[in-house]
Design a protein around this nucleic acid. Sequence first.
DNA 1: TATTTTTAGTTGTATAGACCAAAAAGTTCT
DNA 2: AGAACTTTTTGGTCTATACAACTAAAAATA
Lengths: 243, 243
Amino acid sequence: MIDKQSPIPIYHQLEEYIKQLIENGKLKPDEAIPSEREYSEQYQISRMTVRQALNNLVNDGYLYRQKGRGTFVNKQKVEQKLQGLTSFTEDMKERGMVPSSRLISFEIIPAEPQLARKLDIKENTPVYEIKRVRMADSLPMALETTYLPANLVKGLTEEIINKSLYQHIEEKLSLTIREATQQIEASIAKETEVNHLQVESGSPVLLIVRTSFLEDGTPFELVKSAYRADRYKFVHTMQRAAK
Amino acid sequence: MIDKQSPIPIYHQLEEYIKQLIENGKLKPDEAIPSEREYSEQYQISRMTVRQALNNLVNDGYLYRQKGRGTFVNKQKVEQKLQGLTSFTEDMKERGMVPSSRLISFEIIPAEPQLARKLDIKENTPVYEIKRVRMADSLPMALETTYLPANLVKGLTEEIINKSLYQHIEEKLSLTIREATQQIEASIAKETEVNHLQVESGSPVLLIVRTSFLEDGTPFELVKSAYRADRYKFVHTMQRAAK
DNA sequence: TATTTTTAGTTGTATAGACCAAAAAGTTCT
DNA sequence: AGAACTTTTTGGTCTATACAACTAAAAATA
C-alpha cells in the first residue's frame, strides 16, 4: 500500500489511500479510522508523517478529529457537487430534472459601457448576446441572457448553442472556467419575464447575475437570469476557514 | 512577541502575529516574509513549529509558498471574506455598514416536527427562538428568526443576544461553526414583514434559510431571514473543483 | 451498588536533526 | 560581458522522541 521508494511522498500515498476508502464507502461517516500510532506502526512510518496525511484530509473535509478520542470520517458533502456546477444544465440535472431551452434571440452586439467594464473589454467590442428561456421538465424556469466576448469564442452558431454551449467551450475551445461570482437578488417579474416565464404580473423572481472567469482571471461571460421564484430555490454550502 | 510559557500554543501565537502584520498592511501582497529558519532562530523555536504556523496561514489563504524562493503574502481575497462570514453582523461590516438589531421576541419553545428534523433533534425538544429586526445604518434590512437547540446553548439571555451572540458562542462556549448551508429564494413580503421592514405590500423580499453545523457535523442553528430586496443583494463567489 | 481514582489510549504541541529538490546568488572561466 | 559551474538559501519530506491534554474504560474505594 505504501511504497517508501516511490518518488511520491509517503504522506500523499497514505492520503490517497484513505481518501479511496472513504469514497468507496469502506469507511463510513462517523466511523473512527485507525489511530495515528497504528498507521505509524503498520506501515513503519513516523507518526508525524501520518499526521501530515491526516491533517490534509481534515483540511479537505474528509475527516474530523477529537482530542482524546480519535479521528473520524466526515459526512459526504453536497458542497463538492455544488461548487462544481456552473451552468443551468448541470444545475437542473443535479436536481433530477430534465433541462431544455428555447432560443429567443442570438446576435452579435457592441458592448455597452457597463457590460464592457464587467467583461474587462473595451467599449463597443463585439459580444455575443444569447437570450433563452430555460426549462426544466418542459416548464419555464428562467429567462436567461448570456454575454460572451466574441474574440474569445469564435464561430458560435445556433446549433452549438442548442446543443451544449459549455461542452463546446470546454472541449472544443479547451477553455476552463475556474471561478464565478454570483449576485443574487429578489425582484418582481418585468413584462418580458411575465410573458416568457408565464407568471402573473407582480410575481416574485430570483435574479442571478453570474460572471465567470478563466484560469488566468480573464472575465469570460456574464449571465443574467430571472428565475421563477415558485419553482427555483438557490442552494449553497459554504465552509468556514479554520481559525 | 512569542511567550513560550503561555498556555497558548507557540505556533498559534506566531500565526496571529503574522496575520496581524498582514491585516495591518505591514506585510504587503507578494512580499516575502522571513524564512522558516530565520523565524526559528529569532524566536528560538523549532523549524517544524514555524512550519505549523505557516501551513495554517497558507491553508487560510494568507500566504503562499514557493520552493527554493520563500514564503509570500497573498493578495487579500474577497472570496475568503465571504466564505468566512456567517452572521448578519459580519456581513454588514463587510459591506461597510453599521449593523444593529431590535429584538422582537425571545423565548424557549418546543421544536415542531419540521424544525426538529432540520436541527436533527427529537420533536418538542426545547429550542430558543429569537426574532429580530436587523438593521444597517439604522435602516431595516431584514427580519430574522433564529432557532438554537437549548441543550447546546445554555443560559442565553437578552443581554447576550443584544451584545454578540456569535462571539458568545465561539468564545464563551468554545463551539466552532464549520460550515453552513443556505437556501435562497425570492418571495413577496408577508404582512409581518411589511410591518417590520417598512416596505409596501407586494414588495419583493429575498428569503435566506441558513443551517449551520459544528465541526462534527451536528446541526447547530437554523436562521430564517427575509431581506428587503431593494437594499440587499447576496454576493457569492464559487470556485470550481480542479479536474 | 455507586462513586472515585487510576490507567491506557488518543490527539495536540514541540524539539532537534537529517536529507532532498528547487531557486538564487556567487564564482570562475572563457 | 557572458556562460558555465559551485555554493548558499529556501521550502519539502521524514524520522524519532517527549510530554501535555483529553477521553473512556477499568480498577479501586466507599
